[in-house]
């Protein structure tokens, strides 16, 4: 499906990153990242395996601490806020994990209501059930409500994972490889879901992927992570209109001429 025109406010950045650095032991993963994510925008982050894409969004969500640099998320400096503020901020950010990270001791229903039950104490049982049904319907998996995560396929798990983050109506969504390891049809469904989330909830998203079809169909802008920095940022055509040998293989592999 072609991507519908998004309503993006380029004067309102929800995430601003300046000079972000992160190393593990003596391995420098991120070496000066600058990035803006605007209100309502889908930004796709491309990059080879091990370039630190997951590390980047883990830093944005406060799971990892940056070594250096400034990371402003929804107006808050992530490395300077208190635990309480961080917890409040996280409710406004949805994080869809690379491997779904469903709670495997809980049913799909329990998985979905977990963030609600624990963050919105005033909700009644009825309201909770209502929200669970709404998000399950949004990802098209209403029939799995009483199943355990182990009984779901990879694609279904991914979608439940996304549903679980949607249930808190996040303002920012972070998708870590939403289509990795899925068949083309499921990929298209997930891409559509990502776009639908953008349109329906007016969220701003960072989408990490290797999958150029996903990048093309979901991204308003593409950012290419190379050697720990964003080397090329812009529209899909701009990013790939290059002879850079580090960028070209992505394109050639994904779109067999």
């Amino acid at each position: 499906m072609e991507k519908a025109k998004a309503d993006i406010d380029y004067n309102d950045p929800v995430i601003t990153i300046r000079g972000l650095e992160k190393s593990f032991a003596d391995f420098e993963v991120l070496r000066g990242i600058d990035l803006d994510l605007y209100q309502g925008e889908n930004l796709v982050v491309l990059g080879r395996s091990g370039t630190g894409k997951s590390v980047l969004i883990k830093i944005i969500s406060g799971l990892m601490r940056p070594d250096k640099g400034e990371v402003m998320v929804l107006g808050k400096d992530i490395s300077k806020i208190s635990d309480k503020e961080l917890q409040e901020l996280r409710i406004r950010i949805g994080f869809s994990f690379q491997n779904s990270a469903l709670y495997d001791s809980m049913t799909v229903r329990k998985n979905l209501e977990f963030p609600l039950v624990r963050n919105r104490k005033s909700l009644t049982r009825k309201e909770i059930d209502q929200s669970v049904e709404t998000v399950l319907d949004a990802v098209g998996l209403s029939h799995t409500i009483n199943q355990m995560p182990a009984e779901l396929s990879g694609g279904q798990r991914k979608r439940i994972g996304i549903a679980r983050t949607l249930i808190l109506n996040p303002e920012v969504m972070l998708y870590d490889e939403p289509t990795a390891g899925l068949d083309p049809i499921t990929c298209i469904e997930i891409n559509d879901l990502i776009n639908e989330v953008q349109q329906r909830f007016h969220t701003s998203s960072i989408i990490i992927t290797h999958d150029l079809t996903c990048a093309k169909n979901t991204g308003d802008r593409i950012a290419m992570l190379l050697d720990g920095q964003f080397q090329r940022v812009g529209l899909f055509e701009e990013v790939f209109n290059t002879l850079d040998a580090r960028v070209k293989p992505f394109f050639e592999y994904n779109f067999i001429q």
Partner: peptide, 17 residues
């Protein structure tokens, strides 16, 4: 296994302790 499969991180980012 919850740590390894990032379930603990998932709880963390959904604002639950």
């Amino acid at each position: 296994s919850m740590r390894v499969t990032e379930q603990i991180d998932a709880m963390e980012v959904s604002g639950t302790k």
